[in-house]
Design a binder for these strands. Structure first.
Lengths: 232, 232
DNA sequence: CCGGATCCGGTTAGATACTG
DNA sequence: CAGTATCTAACCGGATCCGG
């Protein structure tokens, strides 16, 4: 046991010993979302140091929440998966996220935007059902960002896998979306709609009119976007 | 903002900044349960230092979860109450507790028992409806404990308020319960039944046969006691 | 007694660099 | 790619003290 215990027999305290250390629930959100590899997890939790990530994964393994599996395909590499106890944390993480969306003031966290994190989340939640039955390429352009973070491509393959690139894959582009990072993040979080952003010239869409019309649908949004916000 | 931010726009991370610092959810459990005064909170979270309790209450006030009210009855004294956002945390705390009861191994926390905490929780959750319509006094005796913690009295008044004393109030006692602290804690947590403990001579009940028969009912148990345990 | 504030030593976390 | 190692800053626990 690395954490000092609360030394209480209350189940809330017992669970809090496992869950309520720094970065742990953010990491669990990433595991619940399906990331399994060390660097895949790092991508979802980019400001967590690798040392602490490694430590937290070991602690969660000791607590029976995560199990480590040695892979054969890339050899000498581990995958981290939730155990049954870990999957049972999904309602807990969701309840925490719903409360955060409803009650935590968003302004401070909108000052710490991250295009890679946003695109990575969008890739994961993209709703591919309304997308045509062929390869579809959407290019996002954030004009205010430095060149290395300015352009991102989401590529939906016919088998409905979605890839994210930040170097030009060379395919024909079906839709260009030019937008500032804050606006796109607000749309992703459900704080404003695609239509509103287009009306106010914060989002410029050029390309397939089908994709433009259905963007609010195929852009899957954050799992918490439907929760109304009540914070000041 | 005293806490370092996760600098993520994800609602889970935003909520975790408020909730997932040491002692915070245990303190919130106490506030959800209805404690309002500083030393009343200390009683429910006895191993938390007063300095940290004060700091956490201030942080929760800044986060809009708790509001401080200056009382007039005992003057120059504050009461801490949950705001609407704070009351909205009840499902979150409950989900955490349910997960803890289901999945966290209890053995370690059963090595850190606390009779005052147990009796204080029992006092709060006592179900007074099946108790007769007159003053009822139940004396708990923990023979293995030092004299200062050995005897406790639960006093149910006709108006259904419940008092806890650890000095003899001098009333006639309707039921004596002689038990070791671990057994009584296990019963409170739903890990074993009153009947089982009596059968195995871990709990000795002397007094009103009505009270003995209905003990499993009026002993309100932990709010999490009905959750089955699956941890190893 | 109530409601904290202060000080100090140990632990945890963040930043950065480095290795197989 | 998948982590360690190292150093420093921040946080936490425990004890003590203080004004009303």
């Amino acid at each position: 046991m690395t954490n000092a215990s609360y030394k209480q027999f209350c189940p809330v305290a017992m669970a809090a010993e496992v869950l309520c250390t720094r970065w742990t629930v953010v990491l669990l959100r990433e595991l619940v979302a399906g990331s399994t590899r060390f660097n895949e997890l790092r991508r979802g939790v980019p400001r967590m140091s690798p040392a602490l990530l490694s430590k937290r994964l070991s602690e969660l393994e000791s607590a029976g929440v995560v199990e480590r599996e040695r892979l054969t395909d890339p050899p000498d590499v581990d995958a981290y998966r939730l155990t049954r106890a870990g999957r049972d944390l999904q309602p807990v993480i969701e309840a925490i996220g719903m409360w955060g969306q409803k009650w935590v003031e968003t302004e401070p966290s909108l000052e710490n935007l991250d295009p890679e994190l946003l695109m990575w989340d969008m890739r994961r939640n993209l709703d591919t059902t309304p997308v045509p039955d062929r390869r579809v390429v959407i290019e996002f352009i954030y004009p205010e960002l430095p060149r290395s973070q300015r352009k991102w491509w989401l590529i939906v393959e016919p088998d409905e896998t979605v890839d994210l690139c930040h170097i030009d894959p060379g395919f024909d582009v079906d839709l260009y979306a030019t937008v500032d990072l804050r606006t796109m993040t607000e749309i992703w979080m459900g704080l404003r709609s695609v239509a509103d952003a287009v009306d106010r010239d914060a989002l410029l869409l050029v390309g397939s009119s089908d994709l433009i019309r259905s963007m609010q649908t195929w852009l899957g949004l954050s799992p918490f976007a439907q929760q109304e916000k009540l914070a000041s």
